[in-house]
Nucleic acid binder design. Structure first.
Lengths: 355, 355
DNA sequence: ACAGTGAATGTAATCGGTTACAAACTCAAT
DNA sequence: ATTGAGTTTGTAACCGATTACATTCACTGT
């Protein structure tokens, strides 16, 4: 009437809900233990060829999908990593998200995106939130984060990597480039073609180390050329079209004889271009303009924008690798230096000879 | 010599690793059971005021952070939702990601971002991947997805919502606007100011229902005005500057007497603008151009772009709410219709009187 | 033939919460 | 005082994987 197996089956049914197929089902169908199934997936080489095949076959037949939360709980690894960026609206950050996502996916990790504006306090908060949700690692922009952030990450043993700024001696893993040098390069180029009075539209040097470094780069170049760079030739402004148009106008009011405007990034440069245009000034004949980032449209503008190209996508990919290496306990480079290129286009030219 | 308590304490130590503080620690410190602690957080009103205070106090004192994976495992809810978009580079998708992220965070959910290009097969793959990682819900762009996607989502009981296209009678929850009508509105406006020969730069009508609908909107408007719209006046192209410049050039080659070019979105319109400019044509004097989306820079271009504004951010927020409502088993609107605005600027004008 | 070694596999405890169910308690109505 | 309904709290099973440890197995060298 009654037989053991049916009893057993019933208890099995009780355990799992309606549809969901678990590792036990796969194990049963493949005629092995759950441990073996787990190994077949997570450490294939520790399992014999025959069994591996049987297991994958069973898994396919049952359309088995591992339960992530269970995996995370027992292995103490969520397989999620996070990225905290100022905004997703700027294409350079979008590119980084995209590349990080792709590379991370390839390495078996998912990506959580958090947005922090350009504000270190909000950043700290968002990082905490990510930690709370249990990410294994985090990619950060810049190196200038609240001390408590570093403390939190270290105390909870969460992998992290700073990007965008290279620092050979930093205790924090980083992959980036030399912002000061990059900006210095543009400045030197401008100086080399004869510019003496250069204005700067900068990012927020208080909140952003990249802005600080880039401005420093300009200062260095000017200094070593023996040129002055008084504060009135510098304007700090947000990364928005209207803000940068305004900044551009202000600068020209105070320094009407400027022959070039260097901008922290392409967005600001675009704004400057538009403003100059509507002021009736011609670029580069009347005044030169430079950007930074080489966004897609930079080459299409007229005049096409002189700018600096940085391999943002590659940077994010390397960051993903650094994170995963940390998580796996493998070796990883403490600091990685990326190249950049000065891209000279039509928005810059020697200044008009002055009467 | 030996006492029970110490024995017990030891076993407790064995359970949890080094630092991590669990719900049991909080329970102990607050002098209540773990169930009560859990309730104090997840269903505060089912717990007495006094105890709730004691629990939160204990949790704070211990800097307790709930273990997400454990929560997910036992509650069968990951508290992650996903979004699948074509690319993060286009500002409208970036905006949606941003808004969804914010609203979702407010509702206690994290956001996973997946990128699918403009390709339904890749989309299906990415959706599967999200399901695999265990999201509770997914926001999708458009309504035109592989049948197996809908099957998968329904069979696994995963919440989802289509966005961007409104469809009152669709069986699938959606929040969006009427693409055909929006584009129709621009066309009617152009016709009303005298344009007879209009060219179209469209998106990929095979892969994108939005492109299909918008083109249909133009067709409707032309038809009801008794105007022809032969295929040679339509060009399908990718959402990139160079592609759209090329498309623009092609169109003018075949239809040199066109007086207006309607573009699927602002990016393409920008490309068209640039191309026309470099061809020596003036906008709007020689030819009118329209976009769609009203991106940040659209108003800054010269000429400022005539386009359509859609509340992308609000749409994503509503989508978040629909998803969460589904997950909570609350009521939710099956279809939500959003408004759009025709924004007339300087890139459109009546056509020049023909000799 | 046999101990020794390393690889393949199985058993079952464990991760840290949630929640079904039971127990205890409160308070109003009888 | 007693009952009963409703509320608050506790007990412990459970979610679905991973993995430490035990066991089995196949070979190798002597």
């Amino acid at each position: 009437m009654d037989n053991e197996p049916s009893e057993e089956r019933r208890s099995t049914r009780l355990r799992k809900g309606s549809g969901s197929i678990g590792i036990r089902d796969v194990a049963e169908r493949a005629g092995v233990s759950t441990a073996t199934v787990s190994r077949a997936f997570n450490a294939p080489k520790s399992v014999s060829e025959t069994i591996r095949r049987k297991v994958t076959e069973a898994a396919n037949a049952l359309a088995y999908i591992p339960h992530n939360a269970a995996r995370a709980l027992s292995s103490q690894r969520s397989r999620n990593i996070g990225i905290v960026i100022p905004t997703i609206q700027n294409s350079i950050f979008a590119t980084q998200v995209e590349s990080l996502q792709q590379r991370a996916a390839g390495l078996g990790y998912n990506l959580l995106v958090a947005l922090a504006g350009f504000n270190r306090d909000i950043e700290a908060e968002k990082i905490q939130q990510l930690v709370r949700t249990g990410v294994d690692g985090i990619m950060l922009i810049g190196a200038d984060h609240r001390a408590e952030v570093y403390r939190l990450l270290q105390s909870r043993d969460i992998a992290y990597v700073n990007t965008s700024v290279f620092n050979a001696t930093s205790p924090h893993p980083n992959v980036g480039f030399n912002n000061a040098e990059a900006m210095s390069r543009i400045a030197k180029y401008l100086i080399s073609i004869g510019h003496l009075k250069i204005c700067v539209i900068s990012g927020d040097v208080v909140e952003s180390d990249r802005a600080r470094l880039r401005l420093e780069g300009i200062r260095n170049a000017m200094k070593s050329a023996g040129l002055p760079l008084p504060d009135e030739q510098i304007r700090i402004c947000a990364y928005e079209m209207s803000a940068s148009r305004q900044a551009c106008r202000d600068l020209l009011n105070r320094t009407p004889d400027a022959t070039a405007i260097m901008c922290h990034n392409d967005v600001q440069a675009f704004g400057a271009l538009l403003e100059l245009q509507s002021l009736g000034l011609r670029v580069p004949e009347d005044i030169s303009v430079t950007g930074f980032d080489d966004l897609e449209w930079a080459r299409h503008l007229s005049p096409a924008l002189t700018t600096v190209r940085v391999p943002w996508g590659k940077m994010a990919e390397l960051a993903a690798e650094v994170l995963v290496a940390q998580l796996n306990g493998s070796e990883f480079p403490q600091a990685t230096l990326l190249d950049f290129d000065l891209v000279v286009r039509d928005s810059t030219a020697p200044p008009r000879p002055r009467p």
